[in-house]
């Protein structure tokens, strides 16, 4: 009763950050349609190891769609052709028997390739370090219920906060822009009274860091939101623009 398919994989292989990369083609038979995309890659790696070859390197960790570690640009889509999921949640039932699947790493100036399909996404950490926080120390904070927050705002903040920092937005963007990532964090914290206090400072600092790290300029194409595995809304970018422009006019 288990359904299986045969596929051809075209996988980007690159020995190191400076090495020249290229595509390798692999054929895999009898892949269960119930297996996840990464489990299919596990099968490929097991096969390569048994042939005493080096396995394909790719980032992955929680395999339940929340850690943001998995990446992969599959058949022209970050996280593959299904919507609102990460690569680890993509299942082989989304592919046809005999299909050729092209797997590439995230391509962005700010995300250099480390090896094969693994890229360095520390640029996102640096943006958060520039201002993606509320400046409170441990202890000495008011009671959690001291400031009521409208449910609508809390829910909207939660939607923005569900960003997993995977980098699909910048990978999908034809401009290599990280605006959706930055906007999600700025939005989340600007919507909450706790974060409102330093909202202007945060928006300026995070945008400045994003620009410095070599991300591109947003042109509102919306590819980021379309490919976002957590469906973070494009309107967060409008809020970031608003926060940023207001902050600049106040200076």
């Amino acid at each position: 009763m288990e359904k299986t398919i045969n596929i051809t994989l075209k996988v980007w292989r690159q020995a190191g950050p400076k090495a020249k990369g290229g595509f390798e083609t692999y054929k895999l038979d009898n892949i269960s349609t119930d297996s996840s995309f990464l489990e299919m890659l596990d099968v490929l790696n097991e096969k390569l190891i048994n042939e005493r070859k080096e396995p394909v390197v790719f980032d992955h960790d929680c395999r339940e769609g929340i850690c943001g570690m998995c990446s992969l640009y599959i058949n022209g889509h970050p996280h593959g052709p299904d919507s609102a999921i990460t690569t680890c949640q993509l299942h082989m039932r989304k592919f046809k028997d005999g299909e050729t699947i092209t797997v590439e790493p995230w391509r962005s100036n700010a995300f250099p390739v480390i090896k094969d399909l693994m890229v360095d996404r520390r640029a996102y950490d640096k943006i958060i370090q520039a201002g993606g926080f509320v400046s409170v120390n441990t202890g000495g904070v008011p009671d959690a219920n001291a400031i009521p927050i409208p449910k609508k705002d809390a829910d909207e903040a939660m939607d923005a906060a569900s960003c997993i920092g995977c980098g699909a937005c910048a990978a999908a963007c034809k401009n290599g822009s990280a605006m959706l990532f930055v906007a999600a964090k700025v939005s989340q914290l600007a919507l909450l009274p706790q974060g409102k206090v330093e909202a202007a400072r945060r928006a300026k600092a995070m945008v400045a860091k994003m620009d410095e790290l070599g991300f591109g300029n947003c042109t509102n194409t919306g590819a980021c939101a379309a490919e976002c595995p957590k469906s973070v809304s494009l309107s967060n970018i409008a809020r970031l623009n608003r926060e940023f422009i207001c902050a600049k006019f106040k200076d």
């Binding site: 990369g21 640009y73 022209g76 391509r107 100036n109 034809k174 401009n175 070599g214 300029n217």
Partner: peptide, 19 residues
């Protein structure tokens, strides 16, 4: 923006419905 995409281009690109 072209520079921000990096040196390598994607081999396969596909359009997103909502874009």
């Amino acid at each position: 923006n072209y520079r921000a995409r990096g040196n390598a281009r994607y081999e396969v690109t596909d359009r997103q419905e909502s874009v």
